[in-house]
């Protein structure tokens, strides 16, 4: 036999690796290469012009900070609501399975569909939300959720909160279930009230799960595209423009492939920088 038995694994792994390289590696490498091209006809060779342009582009700056705001508020609210709902679902609640399914529903809805649903819910004229608020008597006039510059980003984040908390909830619920009940009982005998039990048992017990949820959620929310694209397309103006929608615009609207590639490379680097500490932290724990 010309392949030794202990090398046989390579043969089995090869198709998978090839597929990965083709599907992931190839586009990644092409866009990195793209990002160093000028894009003007007749200009050969590589240049840093796109990256220099990025730092002079005021829209890129705005978009970048919009992304930071969108991601931090989304992730923070996911964590808080996710933990709260997980704790409710973990406690003695009647009809638990039913509530679990209900709490998971927003997560099942695809991104774009969520965007479209909420675009209609928010609609000043036809929207159910304004209808409801007016009927209850909380407001007199319909609120322009998505077109009011002061509200647009908040409204988008609220929708993303609704859409994204179930994932965090699910992870933290699994974490809660893994904390032995006896710890709480020991603490109760030791005289620790519920808040102290939360601080000294629940939170440390959830630490790993929180780190995992944080890392994943940050990465996902930075990449979040369909929701905003379907709901506001970055508007009004560039108030809800985030890196993903901006890249899309540069590529498909202005056909600046090289510039769009540069944005996505920067995005990837930022993501790596943000998530590396978490990956490191997880690998530290045994």
């Amino acid at each position: 036999m010309w392949i030794k038995d202990r090398h046989m694994w390579m043969v089995f792994v090869l198709p998978g690796v090839l597929l990965l390289v083709l599907v992931l590696g190839w586009p990644a490498i092409t866009s990195i290469l793209y990002s160093f091209e000028s894009g003007r006809a007749g200009e050969a060779g590589y240049t840093l012009a796109n990256y220099k342009g990025l730092f002079k582009d005021p829209f890129f700056k705005t978009t970048f900070w919009n992304t930071v705001v969108f991601v931090s508020f989304s992730v923070a609210s996911h964590m808080i609501l996710g933990l709260a709902v997980a704790m409710v679902l973990h406690s003695a609640l009647p009809a638990k399975p039913l509530f679990r399914v209900i709490a998971l529903l927003p997560w099942v809805v695809p991104d774009v569909v969520a965007g479209i649903i909420w675009k209609w819910m928010y609609d000043p004229i036809y929207g159910a939300l304004n209808d409801l608020l007016i009927t209850i008597g909380i407001v007199d006039n319909p609120i322009e959720w998505l077109s009011n510059p002061k509200l647009a980003m908040t409204s988008a984040i609220l929708v993303n909160l609704w859409r994204g908390f179930p994932f965090v909830m699910l992870i933290l619920l699994a974490g809660l279930q893994a904390i032995p009940r006896h710890l709480y009982e020991a603490a109760a005998i030791d005289g620790a009230p519920k808040l102290q039990q939360f601080i000294h048992i629940t939170l440390p017990g959830l630490k790993k799960m929180i780190v995992v949820a944080l890392a994943l959620d940050i990465v996902w929310e930075v990449r979040r595209f369909g929701l905003i694209q379907a709901m506001t397309q970055g508007g009004p103006g560039v108030l809800t423009e985030v890196l993903s929608t901006y890249t899309y615009k540069q590529y498909f609207k202005f056909f600046r492939f090289e510039y769009a590639s540069a944005i996505s490379v920067v995005m990837t680097i930022v993501l790596l920088l943000v998530s590396l500490p978490y990956i490191w932290m997880i690998s530290q724990e045994e």
Partner: peptide, 30 residues
């Protein structure tokens, strides 16, 4: 907590994130 009892559990139920010292001190601290 008000029964003036202490219990030793079958699986010990030590607080996993605290040092032995803090495990011992926890009840007194509370």
């Amino acid at each position: 907590k008000d029964r003036d009892i202490a219990m030793v559990f079958q699986n010990y139920a030590l607080y996993p994130h605290m040092s032995v010292y803090k495990n011992l001190a926890f009840g007194l601290k509370q």
